[in-house]
Amino acid sequence: MRTYALTVFDQSGENLLNETFTAENDEEAKKVGQARLDEEGYSEYTHRCVNPEAKLILFHR
C-alpha cells in the first residue's frame, strides 16, 4: 500500500482538510480522494492529492 495526501483550501487559503490515506496505486487513490471530497462537500474547492513521490494525481483550482 502507498500513502497519499489530500488537501483542501478555501478561497482565502485556509486549510479545510489535510489528511492521508492508503491505496494500491494512483488510479485507486484518485477514486478514494474524489469520494472523500464528495463526502465532505469539497469537490468544488481548491484541492490536491499527491502520491508518495509528490506527483499531483488529483487537482482542482
Rank of each mutant, 00 (worst) to 15 (best):
E19I: 02
L56T: 13
H60Y: 15
F21Y: 14
P52T: 00
F9N: 05
A54L: 11
E24Q: 14
T7A: 11
L37S: 05
H60C: 07
Y4P: 05
N18C: 02
R61Y: 07
A5M: 07
D10A: 00
R61W: 09
L58Q: 09
K55T: 12
A35Y: 11
E53Y: 12
T3G: 06
S12G: 09
V50P: 06
P52Y: 02
T22S: 15
T46V: 03
G13W: 08
N51H: 11
D10F: 01
D38L: 10
D38P: 04
G13K: 09
L17R: 08
F9H: 11
E14Q: 13
A35M: 08
E19W: 04
Q34V: 08
N15C: 07
N51D: 14
R48H: 08
T22H: 10
S43A: 11
L17W: 06
R48F: 09
V8A: 01
T20P: 09
L37N: 07
D10Y: 05
E14A: 07
T7C: 12
A54K: 15
G13A: 02
G41N: 06
S12Y: 07
A29H: 05
L58T: 04
C49T: 12
D26C: 01
K55L: 06
L58S: 12
L16I: 02
S12Q: 12
Y45M: 05
L6P: 03
E28F: 03
C49M: 10
E24Y: 09
F59M: 10
T22I: 04
R48V: 10
E27A: 07
I57C: 09
E40Q: 14
E39R: 14
L56M: 12
E24P: 05
Q11C: 04
I57H: 13
F21D: 02
E44G: 12
F9A: 01
F21W: 08
E14K: 14
D38I: 13
H47K: 08
H47C: 02
I57G: 09
T46D: 01
A35H: 14
